[in-house]
Nucleic acid binder design. Structure first.
Lengths: 341, 341
DNA sequence: GCAATATGTGACAACGATGTCAAAAATCCT
DNA sequence: AGGATTTTTGACATCGTTGTCACATATTGC
């Protein structure tokens, strides 16, 4: 027989299905000897509970949804991997749901996966963790959800984040410490709320060092390689070009780096470039890019923990402070002493 | 009431649940007027069938598994995205399952998802689509499965592939057409069966042009950026260095490109570099890398189609010829005329 | 107009687990 | 020892859908 059911196990072990169920789910009130006997039979028969039957009957789905804007990005891949492995440890499953806000029916897709799959919880990645319309969908359906690096205080939602402000400040201090005074900032898009926090950190560090920010050297990209290319060109062709560029993600930093290369500006000798994210591209560049390591996988794993942890399911969920995970400054070869200094 | 069941719809429409079921599943034998009436009620009540109940009852799970070696790679992301979107169109769901052959219990994980989730089908990405032990797991469980770009003729399994041999041949011909005679080949790892086919294509083109292959310039990497870096260094430091390097994937091509840059060798003026894959890195490099566009998302989508198509479920599944999807030569800036020519 | 066939429709029993609750067994008290 | 607990166990209903099969209603052919 190909498919082993709980009844088969029960029959073989000489107990009722319910008792087998108890053993499987690690519940109390089973005599140790019986528990062992059942476990032996489970192993013998190689029995695996049918996830659907279990979900149907228990009204828990053992399914978590990961809602992502752009599932092809490296950021998404890291987040997904972190969530996936933790789900596996907890014997949950993960369903990845791309959310394309440009499509008119994106809400239907989300509602569909919520109700049809009866998700036990949702993880919402940036930048869509800041889309109120989306979050409301989870609220309405009463689905516990954790936001990764959201903008504000997420009332009623769980949240996991890193200290974007502090990290940007550290990076800026690193550049200042190398003697740089004229530092450009390549901002991220307004839609990513982390952008604003990184800018804050940058300005805080500059202010603390008593350096005035050159406002014409604070420009805004869209986190794409291409925008880094374009903004780098604008920035580096100026007569009084900055001696360092801090880009708010690695793809843009790479764009700046390559522009410098095209223009014959040596990095890091004539120009320092810093990124943010520790994406694969920052290591596959030459020179390798100094950056901030974001705990992407760790944040996702923590989000899984929060959702799976029964204590989170209580009513006072929203009152818990957002979990803050540590980042790290990764100094590589694209940043060096200021030539003028 | 928060949860709408099929009974609610049936009651409101004045028919039996079974009839509603028929409408939902697009079955025959429902009078058009009734069908419409039911559909109206479904829309009104915003009813979504409970996926678990449906699966339990019908013994179809509407779930496909995607088995991937390294879920963080860009290749995986593209494959996953292609599969995901097609699944959505077909109203299936996708479960991503990382398979880490280094972990002793990888088989358990796979078996677990097969039996516990009752997968309707499996998609197996390279390189693990060539792992017989894994494929046997699907055979034993009688799970329809489609391999993406497998090595040999997959007896009993479905397959979707591209013409690696032809593509490599085209790329080599492109280089030869630019006047190159001394062309290096940076091979992929033996574990990736596509590697061998790409080498074949390379040799075929060279032979057809009557050019002898410099065997010392045929080296093997592991598809990583780092290996491209190292092999590039070995290749380009030789006295009689090749005028063109054809790397079997973009990451390695990027490694070669960056080595050339370090050594002060101008690309494409003094050296042409070609890649394979059309990964993001090939576009985020400078100069942008000439490469082969692999139909990654398309292969994945086709795999979904095959699995969902009932005709595939018939016994003669294996007899169908593997589906071949078109690639494209993408000429960008890293390849140019041979300087010596 | 009356069999013989199609075509709709619904009752009912699965699917394989868990929740509830009551019965049975073991343990604890004087 | 015997009643009061506590712990362990299983019968049975249930989750929300679909498969099966029988029935009711149209359609066809002669």
């Amino acid at each position: 027989m190909s498919i082993v059911t709980i009844k088969d196990v029960a029959a073989r072990a000489g107990v009722s299905p319910k008792t087998v169920s108890r053993v499987i789910n690690g519940e109390d009130h089973v005599r140790p000897e019986i528990r062992e006997a059942v476990q032996r039979v489970v192993a013998e028969l190689n029995y695996r509970p049918n996830a659907f039957a279990r979900s149907l009957s228990s009204s828990r789905s053992y399914l978590l949804g990961l809602f992502i804007d752009d599932p092809v990005s490296g950021y998404a891949a890291d987040v997904q991997h972190g969530a996936l492995l933790r789900c596996r440890e907890r014997s949950y499953h993960l369903v990845v749901e791309p959310v394309d806000l440009h499509q008119p029916d994106w809400k239907d897709h989300v509602r569909n996966s919520i109700t049809s799959l009866r998700l036990d919880g949702a993880i919402v990645a940036p930048p869509i963790c800041d889309v109120a319309e989306l979050i409301d969908l989870f609220r309405e359906a009463d689905v516990p959800h954790v936001l990764i690096a959201p903008s504000g205080e997420p009332g009623g939602s769980g949240a996991v984040r890193m200290d974007d402000r502090g990290a940007a400040r550290e990076m800026t201090e690193h550049l200042i410490g190398l003697g740089h005074r004229h530092i450009a900032l390549v901002q991220g898009p307004v839609s990513h709320s982390a952008s604003a926090r990184r800018e804050e950190g940058f300005r805080a560090a500059m202010a603390a060092a008593g350096i005035a920010v050159d406002e014409r050297a604070v420009v805004r990209g869209d986190f794409s390689f291409r925008s880094g290319l374009e903004l780098g060109e604008a920035l580096l062709n100026r007569a009084d070009r900055p001696s360092a560029v801090f880009a708010c993600n690695d793809d843009m930093a790479l764009g700046v780096l390559i522009t410098a290369m095209k223009l014959g500006i040596a990095v890091p000798d004539a120009l320092s470039v810093a990124g943010f994210d520790d994406a694969a591209s920052s290591r596959a560049a030459w020179p390798q890019i100094t950056t901030i390591r974001q705990p992407k996988a760790e944040m996702a794993a923590a989000a899984v923990d929060i959702l799976v942890d029964p204590s989170f399911r209580k009513k006072d969920a929203g009152s818990q402070a957002p979990l803050m995970l540590p980042h790290a400054l990764v100094v590589r070869d694209s940043s060096g002493p200021c030539p003028a200094a």
